[in-house]
Write a protein that binds this DNA or RNA. Structure first.
Lengths: 336, 336
DNA sequence: TTTCTCTGTGAGACCGTTCCCATATGAGAT
DNA sequence: ATCTCATATGGGAACGGTCTCACAGAGAAA
């Protein structure tokens, strides 16, 4: 393969001069510059990033680690969106991105990145303490996005889920709904937990009746599980004459909505359905889903910008960024 | 940072011996082996992949390049699936994956990968000739997945779209549908073109009436465009009393279905709707969408396996792999 | 004239590995 | 006794860049 030495010989200068021309720093006469650039152009020479990384101790690569038990991961309607945003931002900042997905939270996939000497790491979704400790030991800067653990000192970007839950409750209450059934995703996951808490806080604040019997706890935050739990609680649901369902994410809500529609329950005519996240499917469905929007685009962008600062040892103002979610009213909810 | 030299000093051997212990090749006494491994364990030493790549001229990285004009890319219900499969396969084969998405087909993003010296490249979606030429010049092995161009010699993996289109026609005809309206995605794209051709071939073979007036050509293969074109042809649709709609992908079909349902047309009661791809949304919707399944999982896996062969200079049997699609009958179609 | 500064250039160390080669030792064959 | 051969080890070049440093010439300031 072509290298800088070959360019140097062909243009009749030393490799030092070639290096200077390429980097643009240091002195190089116009004459030398022209000769070198001409040869580079002719040979279609591209500097070897591996060698560069070797000496500069900077790879200009960042790693994105997504842990998720269920498929899909990259094409996941929520995590995939964050990934998309990261890819776009990173590219505009001249970083290349290693993407690793894993189903168990093993140290292996973390090591995979660490060996490759990435400049920084973006960790998406919940992470266990030992993985964080492991990564921390390496001195590689990292940022957590939408993580579950509140490890002190770890820089993380999250959605203000509690507020979102509160907004959802306010919206449904405002429409006149008094009996609301909640499908709550795994409470070990920060988002689902806080969304429930926010919702509960509003209801309690309003002295509205909302207690443990109004909540179904799901084992997964999937469409199937939403459908399954709606089915399982169907008798209960009818006997208590609920008029609304709130799922702690869109897929859950969509699963519930599918069950309802299969049982000829009109949405939103008889029962209003509301989700959280605002993924692409939410707006596509008939009826389109009222939801609380999480700004995944900003999450990804901020993650890149902040990680870049960490990498360049610039000061980072905040250790925790919380993004405000936004109520998106569509067709699946209406005044009761 | 820790390096092999430091390990050598601490274990009282030369760096050559340490290298041998780590790689497992060459001679090393049990005694030396133990000492070295102990130090490695204590220091949590990980060999530097950048330095390794430097001398071995193998990075164990592959690049995935996805060009797509519209958002989303990574989270796209079809391309995202392929990406997911690639990530899983690559990881099990000990490759790390660079993911790059781009909206225009620029040489820049290709260069981005080439400079980083990936061992191989997987190109997803349509690629223009100049980009292919550019990459070809570098001698980096590459594979095209679901590409549009039939460049001779380029190894590619595609779905047998023509057969799929044919199966779709056979299915709808078999159900008794005689008047079928087709929403055809951009014909510059191989898949959409062949799906239409396969469909047309079956219809003509059956001497069924299916002509140009039964086809609407879309500008994009999106949900919105499917909706828009269904709307635009609504009068035409009704006047010709069509009983079925076939979209050349699921999103198009879903867009059309949304329009129909909004206009109180019962699906599949009055009009049957059929798509192509079988993405996650297709099974979620009510009614669930009858479609033709593309084996994205296998596409991704094969891409990795074949690329690995190319990288290791092993012979690759086929230059073009065509995967057989599979009819998936769900609730959106029924006997007319 | 001498000294200083700016411009321009090349030699060579270095980044962290791998791998080839030289060397050493003890056992078994000749 | 010498010759092989397998085992074991370390020295040092190489991979392809960056960067520091030494040095040289030219013009300006002393």
């Amino acid at each position: 393969m072509r290298n800088i030495k070959e360019i140097a010989q062909l243009s009749g200068v030393s490799k030092s001069t070639v290096s200077r021309v390429i980097s643009g720093s240091g002195y190089a006469s116009q004459e030398a510059r022209d000769k070198v650039l001409k040869v580079i152009q002719e040979l279609q020479y591209k500097p070897n990033a591996v060698a560069r990384a070797m000496v500069s101790q900077r790879t200009h690569n960042i790693g994105v680690l997504i842990y998720r038990r269920e498929y899909p991961v990259a094409s996941h309607p929520f995590y995939g969106k964050i990934l998309d945003a990261i890819l776009a931002s990173a590219s505009s900042m001249n970083y290349s991105v290693f993407v690793t997905t894993d189903h168990e939270m093993s140290l292996r996939s973390a090591d995979f990145m660490l060996e490759k000497r990435v400049d920084g790491l973006i960790l998406i979704s919940r992470l266990e303490q030992n993985v964080i400790d492991h990564i921390g030991k390496f001195g590689v800067p990292y940022i957590m996005v939408n993580g579950s653990t509140d490890v002190p000192g770890v820089i993380h970007i999250v959605n203000r889920d509690q507020n979102g839950g509160l907004e959802a409750a306010r919206h449904l209450s405002g429409l006149g709904h008094r009996r609301i059934f909640m499908l709550a995703g795994p409470q070990s996951h920060r988002s689902h937990h806080l969304r429930l808490e926010g919702f509960r806080a509003y209801m309690n604040g309003q002295r509205a009746e909302f207690g443990d019997s109004d909540i179904a706890y799901l084992l997964a935050s999937t469409f199937e599980e939403g459908y399954r739990m709606m089915k399982e609680h169907w008798e209960h649901f009818r006997s208590r004459s609920y008029t609304a369902v709130f799922g702690t994410n869109d897929m859950i809500a969509l699963g519930a909505m599918k069950f309802l529609m299969e049982h000829s329950v009109s949405v939103p005519g008889q029962v209003a359905v509301m989700g959280f996240d605002d993924n692409d499917v939410a707006s596509i469905l008939t009826p389109s889903l009222t939801t609380v929007r999480v700004d995944t685009e900003k999450m990804g962008r901020l993650a890149c910008v902040m990680l870049d600062k960490l990498i360049r040892h610039e000061p980072v103002e905040e250790t925790a960024v919380e993004l405000e979610p936004q109520l998106v009213i569509r067709d699946s909810t209406r005044r009761f």
